[in-house]
Amino acid sequence: MTAAPHDAAGELFELANRGRSRSRHVRDGGEAVVKVVLAGCAGFSVLITALIIGILAYEAVRFFMDVSVVEFLTGTEWSPLLGEEKRFGVWPLVAGTLLVTLVAAIFALPTGLVTAVFLSEYAPSWLRAILKPVLEILAGIPTVVYGFFALLIINPSLQWIAKVVTGEELFGAYSAGAAGIAVGIMILPIVTSLSEDALRSVPRGLRDGAYALGSTRFDTSVRVVIPGALGGIMASYLLAITRAIGETMIVALAAGGLAQLTVLPWRQVQTMTAYMVQIFLGDAPATGVEFKSSFAVAALLFLMTLLLTLAGYRILARFREEYE
């Protein structure tokens, strides 16, 4: 009786020691190689980022030797390609970007949150199993497709609706509104997916606590789950807005090409990104001031999105702490 377990232990010991042992030398050498490879990869992406920022800054500075920073940041007229009197007031481009983004946000932020609440709090698991992949597919559609969609379906629909409602031909062939809605559809999966993650990360115990006090599902969602996930929802909003601001293809196709300072969504606008496309695809000489101007615009755009991204991550980090 007593011998059996002892033997078993002995056998196990023998077995465990049977394998050829890995020498410390080889082990440490492997570790060193891994370290170098990892550091190399990490260094590469840092280097690329630094390079991009460096080029942006360099070209932007060269632009500002021709055009004053004050004119660039305060001017309300942008006509770099027209005639002798070139104007480099960036506001029409910024306004175009903000208008498209605003339309996209008005469309996508509430819709995305409601969808997320539905998915996380209401939908039975089988329905979620269908809807989540559909969202992923939506997120995977190339934006050029959304651009066509805006041009061929959204804008004509808006044209028609505006005609019926006001009796006037408000919309032309391009509009900030149509581009904005298409951008909104594009960022919808981002808002939905990240907000849903945030809602689902609210501990189950909080929902139980709410239900146990007599909350309905709606009470629980609106009074406990959404407030509890607010940080994550805000972060999803900021990241989605960042994507909207940087979106290029949809606006290049559907927003028009005229840089004008307007808040009217049926006008055509030129966004910052669309202007850059125009310059790089167009006939501006690579040495001209208009070519360099696109780098100044790019630098400004980069600053805007950088700030939003940083804000998004800060909110997300604070949100994570809450449930540690």
């Binding site: 115990g205 909080l206 606590g209 406990v224 407030p227 509890g228």
Partner: peptide, 15 residues
Amino acid sequence: RRRVGMVFQKPNPFP
């Protein structure tokens, strides 16, 4: 649930 209250194993105050 208004008449029958519940306290859970892990304290679950709302944030």
